[in-house]
Every structure is written in C-alpha cells, then in structure tokens.
Amino acid sequence: MSNHLTNLTLKVWRQSGPNDGGHFESYRIDSISDEASFLEMLDVLNEKLIGDGKEAVVFDHDCREGICGTCSLMIDGQAHGPQRGTATCQLHMRKFQSNQEIVIEPWRATAFPIVKDLMVDRSAFDRIVEAGGFITAPTGGAPDANLIPIAKPVADASMDAAECIGCGACVAACPNGAANLFTSAKVAHLNLLPQGQAERWSRVEAMVETMDEHFGSCTNHGECEAACPKSISIDFIAMMHKDYRKAKFKNRRLIAQI
C-alpha cells in the first residue's frame, strides 16, 4: 500500500509579475501519498488554495513524462530537485519525508525573467536555435534517406546530444547563468552529422554569439551536467568550444587563405 507523508511545509516563491519584488509564502500539506508526483503535490496545494479563495500558484508543466521540458523548479536549491537525471515532473514524493520543509523557487537566471510565481520566460533558448540551430533543408528537395550512411557511433553520439529537452536546468544550476550545455548539445547534435557539415562553422559561430548576448559565461563548474534531467555530458561543451575556435578562423576568409 502507498504510504502517506504528513505535515510538509512548502516555502513557495510568489511573485505577481515581472515587476513585483516577490516573496516566499509558507503553505502546509497535511498529508500526501508518496505515490504522488511532486507536481501532483502542487496540484493538491492549488486545489486547497482555490478552496480557500486564494490564487493558485503558477508553474509551468505539460507532458509530465519528462520529455517536453516545460516543467522547471528549484527544489531546495537544486534544479529539478534531489533525484539525478530526473525532471521535476518525474520526481515523486517518496523521495521526501514527513515533517520536511521544502523550498520551491523558479529558475534563477537573469536570462530567464520571471513571468509570475514559478513561471519564467525561456524564450532566449529559442533565439539561440533561430540563429543557427538547424540544417537548411527546405521541404521537398531531400535526397533518399539512405543515400548517406551514418556510422552508428556517430548517429548515437548525435542522439546523445539531441536528447536535450530544453528545460533550462543547466542555466538555473550554473553559478554564472551560462547556457553552454544547452547550446553545445544543439551544436553537437547537428555538427556531428554529415548533413550538418555544410553549415557547421557558421552555425556554431551564430549560436555561440547569440548565446553570449543573453547568457553568462561558462567557467567549467559542471553544475549543468549534474542538474541535467537527461544527463547530457559537458564533453559537448568542449566540442562546441573547439568548433567555435576553428570557425573563427575558417569564417575569416583572408586568414583561411593564408
């Protein structure tokens, strides 16, 4: 049978809008099944708040299967909470104990301004992808899919990077608010593939420079990898730096000609 946790105290960040200063509010959860997910616990809280005539806590969530990347939350100071390789929506209450105080905050990063309560604006990620996180292949002109064989280890490495769900935990966990893990995962996904070679150098340059406009700088803390719900490796950051360095030469025609 499922067990119940009792007497939880939630310290939740409430902020009515981008211009509000924001503050913590404490709420009590008398009892919750350990089978409940963390977000279901917040659902219960919200039902209670509505019952009391109060405004529900705003938080981003959608698939609740750990794949859409919509959910977020700093839980006791950890992005996506205490369980490694797990997004908040897949975190369950059995990872917590009765009588515990749990601090719930939004992603903390200048590049992700708070919209309301626990919801932030992550559209800077979209700007990075729009700058170069694609392969230019307009619909209709593609050659047969088996025309270019791709070695399995290459396809697998590309897939390892492509698993990124774009949740922003890497940025939230980084002391500098850097987006290098996110950006490098997208760069690596495409730069590893034969189809991605034509735009390899312009891609990495455009993406890194757009990233730098919005986010802080990477100083190799490695917090991003630890927080990533898909456990994406910081090796991809090294690969991105290498490609960026090369691109700076290759994209300067005069130097490249020497």
């Binding site: 694609f134 392969i135 292949a137 619909t139 209709g140 002109g141 593609a142 050659p143 047969d144 899919a145 270019i148 064989p149 791709i150 070695a151 399995k152 396809a155 697998d156 590309s158 897939m159 492509a162 996904h189 495409l190 593939l193 189809q195 991605g196």
Partner: peptide, 16 residues
C-alpha cells in the same frame, strides 16, 4: 527523406 535531411538522428545499423 525530409527528416533525415533536417538532421533527425534515426537509429542506424552498423553499416550506417
């Protein structure tokens, strides 16, 4: 064809 051109990393066999 279109999705491979876009860079979708579909599963491959060892021959690629």
């Amino acid at each position: 064809d279109q999705m491979v051109a876009q860079g979708v990393p579909f599963a491959r066999e060892y021959g690629g």
